[in-house]
């Protein structure tokens, strides 16, 4: 039976925009939510929250370390602080504060990185975050999320708010193709099968879910039935979804992150524990990118449907 995408891709807003809107909605429902930003509120979209709830919005200036530790203080005092900035600055610059002032006392702080990956585009490598999934996943107790589109981003920001404990949410700058119908339910730690398939499984998240769906369509034309799984929660991984993936006999992990420190290696560890299986990886290989339009960069650095399909063929060849 040929694989068929369950969802039609349509143009949609960026996941950072979804975050900004979700925050306002949640802010209306829960007075304990406070929001901190480091001079990027117009880009992280926390400005929506700041406009509606100026008393609960705190400007920290360009000082991410202080912001992250102060959020720890707010959580100690009973609030649910959201801190936002570009992923590259938020996680890298305040990693130590996330460690000692958030993760170690296991505080209820929500860390939202925007402009993640290389798809920030024109700003170039100093603003590009290709390491932070690895860093966030290294912190005990942290939940790490990477939503693919507007609907899932809004749902996961809500789920992160309800979850008691530290959460990192990885969002992107460019408009993200809409994948899920309004109202789709998402649960932290529960992956979503976006395309059914049985010959191999492509596990991905974020912006690359849409690319993986396109790759599955290309493979379908060749008679290959590729499953696509949106692993929106990188920590904790959905081990049942990984177990089911091993039963297809080949797994391709695709992510907009350094390939040797992101989700792929974490899934490989789970696969090694669950059931050994052929695996191939799509990601950024041991280098920094450059300026350009988001999709020019995704194309050059090997992160588009063509690359995922080619890697899938390689995995299938090893399987046979």
């Amino acid at each position: 039976m040929p694989a068929r995408p369950k969802f039609e891709l349509k143009p949609g807003p960026a996941t950072r925009e979804a975050f900004g809107h979700a925050l306002v909605e949640l802010g209306r429902e829960n007075k304990d939510i406070v929001v901190c930003d480091a001079d990027l509120s117009k880009s992280t979209m926390t400005a929506f929250f700041a406009n509606e709830f100026p008393d609960r919005f705190f400007s920290f200036g360009i000082a991410e370390s202080n912001m992250a530790a102060a959020a720890g203080g707010m959580a100690y005092a009973g609030k649910i602080p959201f801190i936002a900035s570009f992923s590259a600055f938020l996680v890298n610059k305040s990693f130590e504060q996330l460690r000692v002032c958030v993760a170690y006392p296991k505080l209820n702080v929500k860390v939202v990185g925007t402009h993640s990956g290389i798809s920030i585009g024109e700003d170039g490598p100093s603003q590009m975050s290709v390491e932070e999934t690895s860093l966030a996943c290294s912190l005990p107790g942290f939940v790490v999320l990477c939503p693919a589109d507007d609907v899932s981003a809004r749902a996961l920001v809500r789920a992160a708010t309800i979850h008691v404990g530290p959460v990192f949410i990885r969002t992107g700058r460019p408009k993200a193709p809409g994948i899920y119908p309004e109202g789709t339910q998402f649960e932290i730690g529960k992956a979503v099968e976006v395309v059914a398939g049985s010959d191999l499984t492509i596990i991905t998240n974020g912006l690359l879910v849409a690319e993986a769906i396109r790759a599955a369509e290309a493979l379908e034309a060749e008679g290959v039935s590729a499953r696509v799984v949106d692993m929106h929660t990188v920590r904790p991984l959905d081990r049942e979804a990984i177990r089911r993936a091993t039963r297809t006999g080949a797994i391709v992990v695709a992510e907009e992150h350094l390939v040797d420190s992101g989700m792929g290696v974490r899934i490989a560890q789970a696969v090694a524990e669950i059931e050994p299986c052929i695996m191939e990886f799509v990601g950024i290989h041991d280098r920094y990118a450059e300026s350009g339009q988001p999709f020019e960069l995704l194309d050059k650095y090997g992160l588009v449907a063509r690359d995922i399909a080619a890697t899938a063929r390689k995995a299938l060849a090893r399987k046979r």
């Binding site: 406070v34 530790a69 102060a70 203080g73 100690y76 460690r99 000692v100 002032c101």
Partner: peptide
Amino acid sequence: DASTGSLGEGLSIGLGMALVA
């Protein structure tokens, strides 16, 4: 009131608490 030990971080934690109060 707060876990500490890595120097330089307690004043930020205190700032967060003071803002909440």
